[in-house]
Design a protein around this nucleic acid. Structure first.
Length: 419
DNA sequence: TCTGGGGTCCTAGGACCC
DNA sequence: TCTGGGGTCCTAGGACCC
């Protein structure tokens, strides 16, 4: 078979978070289950069982709304560690069918199955084998879309849900796509859907008929990509042609929504410190140094601002992140205005400095000493946390506070922490 | 009954440099 | 002296995805 087209699978786990929770608590099976938090909490639905969906519950819906729509639903807190664990098992199964696997998120993946006929037979046969292997090895259901492009495979797996396999035969792509709502196209959300409706475009078929120039005019550079996707072709942006390797994260962030809005400065800055520490820890885990630090601030009325700063030297230290964040916060928070959410983001990653600390060669005096001291103190705190588990984050924090007091109040007396 | 948390990508304007 | 462009970096905001 010397086909000129490719064969992509898009594998999407069915109600992933709910299904994993059912593995831990089989009594949840067949019931209306909402994962994401408790019914009276500030938050949204991460996942809903098909039983709960019958009542109109869907992900991203406020938990309190879900509780109203489906009062008998069981509300379960999310357990990311469990999902991560299961995601690894899912990957292991996929990887047996082809090494060209790209996890697009925790519960979905693209497989380049081109040229695997000799091993697994024609696409549908391979997909059914994969479907069965997934069930028997992870106890989880998935849906599989098969097509000659990644976009079409993705749309196809959605059409196959739940627990189904669907193949769009090469050559029939545009016919398959044409009757679907534009909203089914990945990348077209609420806003773009609305704008397309205003132009009288409702179906993917309508989109495919338009010429690139028209779409370019109304939607900028990616308008043309949208037209290509409507014809079933992978085109730039979200869909590169190759099923590629991970390149590591481009940003690392943490944010927190208060259970009640607050204007208490001590609470706010304590939260920023905690978020800075969480971000710093993950930077060090990934051996990354961030150049840009960004504050996110959401007020009670939901208006949101971000403020960023890019200092001269990159960092992965909690204290340096926090001192930038606090500067941004103090310069941009209108004192007394109640805040709903705070966030800390780091981006603009740079290669790791050399072990001796290149930065220290460039900086001088106290700054350099301070940086070096914090590097050592942070490494020690990380070790403690690794040794005693995540609950010792508290220990790490109080340790740092002690070190800070020594640095600030008793500079003559400080000594290097032991490694 | 309001609206999470972790991300990616795109746009657009201004600074700055050649 | 009114007027070039191209390129890159930085910042802010927004759409979108799971």
């Amino acid at each position: 078979m010397n086909s000129t087209f490719k064969t992509y699978f898009h594998v999407d786990m069915d109600a992933f978070f709910v299904s994993v929770e059912e593995l831990f608590d089989p009594s949840l099976k067949g019931k209306a289950v909402v994962v994401g938090g408790q019914r009276d909490e500030r938050g949204v639905v991460s996942a809903a069982s098909y039983e709960a969906r019958k009542f109109g519950v869907h992900s991203a819906m406020p938990l309190r709304t879900a509780a109203k729509l489906c009062p008998h639903a069981i509300f379960v807190d999310g357990h990311m560690d469990r999902y991560q664990e299961c995601s690894k098992k899912v990957y292991a199964v996929l990887n047996r069918f082809t090494p060209k696997v790209e996890m697009a998120s925790i519960d979905e993946a693209y497989l380049d199955m081109t040229g695997t006929e000799r091993l697994f037979g024609p696409p549908l046969k391979a997909a059914h084998a994969l479907h069965e292997a997934m069930k028997s090895e992870t106890q989880l259901n998935c849906s599989i879309g098969i097509a000659t492009s990644r976009v079409v495979a993705k749309i196809t797996s959605d059409q196959a849900k739940p627990n189904g396999v669907l193949w769009v035969i090469p050559g029939s792509e545009s016919g398959f796509l044409a009757p679907l709502d534009v909203r089914k196209m990945p990348g077209i959300g609420k806003v773009t859907e609305q704008r397309l409706h205003e132009l009288g475009i409702r179906k993917i078929g309508d989109l495919a008929k338009l010429d690139d120039a028209f779409l370019q005019q109304h939607f900028g550079a990616w308008g043309a990509a949208m037209a290509a996707k409507a014809r079933g072709e992978d085109a730039g942006g979200w869909f590169d042609a190759e099923v590629g390797e991970d390149e590591g994260p481009k940003s690392i962030s943490h944010e927190h929504t208060f259970s009640e809005d607050t204007r208490n400065e001590a609470d706010l800055e304590a939260t920023l410190l905690r978020l800075s520490e969480m971000v710093g820890r993950r930077l060090r885990e990934h051996a990354l140094f961030a150049r840009t630090v960004q504050l996110k601030l959401r007020y009670t009325d939901f208006s949101t601002i971000t403020r960023a700063h890019t200092p001269d030297s990159p960092t992965q230290l909690d204290t340096e992140i926090y001192s930038e964040i606090r500067k941004l916060f103090r310069a941009n928070w209108t004192r007394g205005r109640t805040i709903r959410l705070l966030g800390v983001t780091t981006t603009n990653f740079e290669a790791q400095e050399d072990a001796s600390g290149q930065m220290n060669l460039l900086s001088t005096g106290t700054t350099s000493n301070q940086h070096q001291r914090w590097t050592q103190a942070t490494a020690m705190a990380d070790k403690l946390r690794d040794k005693f588990g995540d609950s010792s984050v508290v220990l790490g924090t109080s340790l740092k506070r002690k070190l800070r007091e020594r640095v600030h109040e008793n500079p003559a007396d400080r000594k290097k922490p032991e490694q």
